[in-house]
């Protein structure tokens, strides 16, 4: 990893996240989502990205942030992963930030569950913390399935 690299930032509620900008293909406004019955709950559905069918993942559900209070339409961050192209549904998009590796820190041990596996670490920025997400882990099948299993258990 380079000393400095750029992160595409976004918000879930007031939490501030970032993904490696290299992985981001594009950011697009809300698209009509076709729900997929019987799919894991983190899969919101499918969107048509210029003729390509892309699976939309609800990051709120995945990171267990909770469902939104208002009916604001989510933004799609289309990312390229080793598992293919996905769209991450987020509340708000932030700037592309260049972050200094020196202010990076591993996530605290108190982090639990899925979040612990997905959140790579924290950048201590001026006045706020930026959490980075490991995109490649995000679509790890086993992980999603585990999510499904834990969701079932809590039901």
């Amino acid at each position: 990893m380079a000393d400095n690299h750029q992160l595409c930032t976004f918000f879930l509620e007031d939490r501030f996240f970032g993904v490696d900008v290299e992985k981001v293909q594009e950011v697009i406004r809300y698209q009509v989502v076709t729900p997929v019955p019987l799919a894991p709950p983190v899969v919101r559905g499918l969107i048509n990205l210029r003729g390509q069918i892309v699976t939309a993942i609800d990051l709120r559900r995945l990171l267990q942030v909770g469902d939104p209070q208002d009916d604001r339409r989510p933004i799609n961050i289309v990312v390229q992963t080793r598992q293919g192209t996905f769209s991450l549904l987020v509340d708000r998009i932030g700037d592309v930030l260049e972050v200094d590796q020196s202010c990076f820190e591993r996530p605290p041990d108190t982090l639990e569950g899925i979040a612990r596996e997905l959140i790579q670490g924290t950048y201590k920025l001026q006045g706020r913390l930026l959490l980075t997400i490991n995109i490649d882990k995000l679509f790890n099948l086993a992980l999603l399935n585990r999510y499904r299993a834990t969701a079932k258990n809590t039901e």
């Binding site: 009509v32 076709t34 997929v36 899969v43 048509n48 699976t55 598992q83 293919g84 999603l144």
Partner: peptide, 23 residues
């Protein structure tokens, strides 16, 4: 369909309809 969804046996795939939505 994406791998994440491939283990749902009732779907063979997806297509894009005339109105641009996915079915």
């Amino acid at each position: 369909l994406d791998k994440v969804l491939q283990d749902i046996p009732v779907f063979a795939g997806a297509t894009i309809m005339g109105d641009g939505r996915v079915a």
